[in-house]
């Protein structure tokens, strides 16, 4: 056996190992958000993935972890999403009804132009806090595949109610916020 043969074999094996690790990492990372939905459906209460994003309605940023001690209704939306327009007034009404009971409605606008999102908030008279995630980096961590989508976070920062795909009704919002408040 010549000197170069083990070296070439070593390089090839290392390259294949690196590619396999990258593939596994990608699969795990992609599946993480879907794992949350499965965990909650199975009755578990995983910790809500934290984020800190620039605010749309005010200066500065808002982090999910800074809302510990409050129940959070986390709503994913975009200004170009038609069902989000129907849902926005219901969320605003829920915010006004529930804010005195330790509940915060947080809107997370993603894959959207910031100016469009600002106009959307003005047009619908939205007063609850909203953050902007242009690249949509947070979506994958929650397994969000479309808009609108909503998660409920308990006071201890855990996902406690199965997430809702599509626009929420007022009845759903009240029912799920009651459930989240009990956790």
């Amino acid at each position: 056996m010549t000197w170069w043969r083990p070296a070439v074999q070593g390089i090839a094996v290392t390259l294949i190992a690196v590619l396999l690790v990258l593939l596994a990492w990608r699969l795990i990372d992609d599946g993480r958000g879907n794992g949350l939905a499965k965990a909650v459906a199975a009755g578990r209460t995983p910790v809500a993935p934290d984020f800190r994003l620039p605010r749309l309605d005010a200066a500065g940023t808002l982090g999910l972890s800074s809302l510990r001690g409050k129940v959070v209704l986390l709503n994913f939306w975009a200004s170009w999403c038609v069902p989000c327009k129907q849902e926005a007034p219901r969320l605003e009404a829920a915010w006004r009804r529930w804010r005195a009971h330790g509940v915060v409605v947080v809107g997370l606008d993603a894959q959207d132009f910031r100016t469009d999102a600002g106009r959307f908030l003005q047009r619908h008279g939205i007063t609850y806090p909203n953050v902007h995630d242009g690249p949509g980096d947070v979506l994958g961590r929650y397994g969000v595949s479309g808009f609108p989508e909503t998660w409920f976070v308990s006071r201890s920062g855990k996902l406690v109610v199965e997430h809702v795909d599509g626009p929420l009704t007022s009845g759903q919002i009240d029912r799920d916020l009651r459930r989240a408040s009990r956790e």
Binding site: F113, P135, G136
Partner: peptide
Amino acid sequence: VSEFGEGV
């Protein structure tokens, strides 16, 4: 890019 990140 400033709106949607470099993935755009």
